[in-house]
Simulated scan of single mutants.
Amino acid sequence: MKVNDRYCSFYYELDEDYGEIVIDGSRTALLIVDMQYHFLTRPDTSGMSEREKAYYARWEYFYDRVDNEVIPNNARLLSAFRERKMLVAHARITGQLANGRDRSLDQKATGYNELLLLDGNPAGEIVAPLAPRENELVVRKTTDSALTGTSLRLMLHNCGIDTVVVTGVLTDQCVSGTVRSLADESFKVWLVEDACGASTREIQEHELSVLNNIYCHVVSTDELIAAL
């Protein structure tokens, strides 16, 4: 079943079975993934080499979207869920061991994914506009998936949740891993296209097409809020 014609991959071009966006507020949670300062803050390139500056210049699409779409739309969704007293959950990358031994293999990789964020590091905090409030779930993970390395699946189950609205960064990494894990655990998943972000437009659109209509349904912030 599809709910729109956007981000429709080859696999689902012939699927003519359309449905509506239906949300049962008592059984639906909002899950915001890794909206932490480390990922969302433009780096200071003043002391970098020309090669490094050229590399980070390619991230301008991402940082512009974060500032102008992703954070504002997450804030809108948070407000909508809070007003309706629906369950809100936050996932953040936070290691416990100073040497990083507790991290999964992908977070020990070299390059962009090599990451060690520990408690007390301001870079690991969730950005202020989306800061968790009292009575919201917050899970710390050392994996891409917010389910694999935490007790989130159990907590969602205990709360009677069978549907999860997912947002956050990066679409092709931790968001994708989380969406796939949720689908594998038989949760219904709605991925909000303008409340998540990847490094480039090409990666963003490709990943949405890969995930859509099998692991989740990709919808906009306006569509999701209207369905509430």
Rank of each mutant, 00 (worst) to 15 (best):
M1Q: 13
K2I: 02
K2F: 00
V3K: 03
V3E: 00
N4F: 01
N4W: 01
C8E: 06
S9L: 04
E13G: 07
E13V: 12
Y18T: 01
G19Q: 13
E20Y: 00
I21M: 10
I21D: 02
V22I: 12
I23W: 06
I23C: 05
S26D: 05
R27T: 10
R27F: 10
R27P: 09
A29V: 03
A29W: 04
L30C: 11
L31G: 09
M35L: 08
Q36V: 03
L40P: 05
D44N: 11
T45I: 11
S49Y: 09
E52N: 10
E52W: 11
A54N: 15
A57L: 12
Y63P: 04
R65P: 01
N68F: 05
V70G: 03
V70Y: 00
P72W: 00
L78Q: 10
A80D: 10
R82S: 08
V88T: 13
A91G: 06
I93V: 13
G95W: 06
A98N: 13
N113G: 08
L115Y: 09
L115D: 04
G120D: 12
N121C: 12
E125I: 00
E125A: 01
P129T: 14
L130H: 08
P132F: 13
R133F: 10
E136C: 12
V138L: 10
V138Y: 04
V139Q: 14
T143C: 02
T148P: 00
S151A: 15
L152F: 02
M155E: 03
C159A: 15
C159F: 10
D162H: 04
T163P: 01
V166N: 03
T167C: 08
G168C: 09
L170F: 14
L170G: 03
S176T: 02
S176E: 11
T178F: 04
V179T: 03
S181A: 15
E185T: 12
F187A: 07
L191G: 01
C196S: 09
G197A: 15
S199D: 12
I203G: 00
I203V: 09
L208T: 05
I214Q: 09
Y215E: 00
Y215V: 00
H217A: 04
H217E: 08
V219M: 07
V219S: 01
V219D: 04
A227Y: 03
A227S: 08
L228W: 07
